[in-house]
Amino acid sequence: HPPSSTVLPPSLPPYFIRGSIIQLADGELKRVEDLKTEDFIQSAEISSELKIDSSTVERIERSHTSPNFAVVQFSVGEHRTQVSVEVLLEYPFFVFGQGWSSCCPDRTTQLLELPCTKLSVGDVCISLTLKNLK
């Protein structure tokens, strides 16, 4: 099967800016830079609709359409479904046990002031699917 393709928002959403206030599923408020893996897992456990999936980075390429974009190919969930997303180089993903990571962490830190590490092949990112998807 060819990879299914998704285009994430072309701009950087405001909630990735350091200091942004994030509400967890239990109502607790945290700054985006303080979020931990457990926060996402526990929030998903409370959620009636969403569940956490593991998305392993399989490939990272520069986009053919724009030098500011990268195409990241993930293997998602237990079925290892191939999904590729086209994102800005500085778009942050949350890596299990590690935290925010992007294709170009220097730019992420510069633009968003969000502490960030380099997203690499083999990293396991947090993603969401519907709980009742069958």
Partner: peptide, 25 residues
């Protein structure tokens, strides 16, 4: 002193990409 005004609060799930796998069954 200026008290902080209402600050936008974002739900946790907006930070996570929604990658719904396509089912091939």
């Amino acid at each position: 002193n200026v008290e902080p005004r209402s600050v936008p609060v974002f739900p946790w799930h907006s930070l996570v990409p929604f990658l719904a796998p396509t089912q091939s069954d």
